[in-house]
Design a protein around this nucleic acid. Structure first.
Ligand SMILES: [Mn+2]
Ligand SMILES: [Mn+2]
Ligand SMILES: [Zn+2]
Ligand SMILES: [Zn+2]
Lengths: 135, 135
DNA sequence: ATATTAAACGCAACACAATTGCATTTAGTT
DNA sequence: AACTAAATGCAATTGTGTTGCGTTTAATAT
């Protein structure tokens, strides 16, 4: 399915900012910060971009992750992600050199045993190290 | 060892703000945000508090964690934590109800197998759910 | 006890991320 | 082509964290 139809299918209008933002998010196979995305446009209103990212997130098109530096990042949801059942439990990798963040969908994490009284809803595993490109 | 001596042992002057901040951090067995700590004082300069927290962190007295909402939090280091070998790899638990964060030093996490090319330096595991008090 | 001084403090200013309100424009529809 | 709800662009505001600088103070030396 093309970008325009995908946005429309999610109940959103296919506007220029949304099309470009989605194309950027779908490229590079990584999680993008607002600043990185903004730099990918020749010209964009940063408030509009904030709202587009929020719209995408609410539509279940992207998920938000806070990286090791506290920077908010967005990555496309690879499997179909209805907002309710949206699982963000996959591992994220943050490179100490280039500071890029990657979603590691194929990395398996073992279930965690919590102390009595604590109930788990979800888990965010954030690994930091050196990525393949920087190695 | 008392609070004053502990601060001095780390090479810092035992000032009123530092004493109070450390007492707050040592109480409650959880990770405190700047805002929460500030509220624990009857009167404190917020810039001074930022600097005290930075000093504590650099001295290896506390470690910094970003919680599920992107809020920066500080928790006392339970075992002796020289800054160089300081391990922050223990699990953190963030409550969806009260938004408090806890360090789970006794929770074991299995080692993670990364794809070829990626080298791991450390890992931050952040579980979200409902804490014992809220359950 | 008093003097000394490097460290810590308090305040103003600044930088940056993110949100809200509102008037204008536009995508999708009739 | 006309309509309208949604999206945009801009200004203003909030929140978090940092930096510079003059003043005060904790720890030390006399
Ligand atoms: Mn991801
Ligand atoms: Mn901790
Ligand atoms: Zn890298
Ligand atoms: Zn709770």
């Amino acid at each position: 399915m093309n970008t325009t139809d995908y946005i429309r299918e999610k109940g959103l209008k296919a506007t220029p900012v949304r099309l470009k933002a989605l194309e950027l998010l779908q490229s590079g196979a990584r999680a993008w910060s607002h600043t990185e995305l903004e730099a990918g446009f020749s010209k964009v209103d940063r408030i509009t971009l904030y709202r587009v990212l929020k719209d995408f997130e609410e539509a279940g098109m992207v998920h938000k992750i806070i990286d090791m530096d506290g920077v908010t990042r967005f990555a496309v949801c690879k499997h179909s992600c209805p907002h309710s059942t949206h699982s963000e439990d996959h591992v994220h990798f943050n490179c100490r050199k280039c500071h890029k963040m990657f979603c590691m969908d194929n990395v398996h994490i073992a279930p965690i045993q919590l102390p009595a009284g604590f109930t788990q809803i979800g888990v965010n595993t954030l690994i930091h190290g050196i990525c393949d490109a920087c190695n």
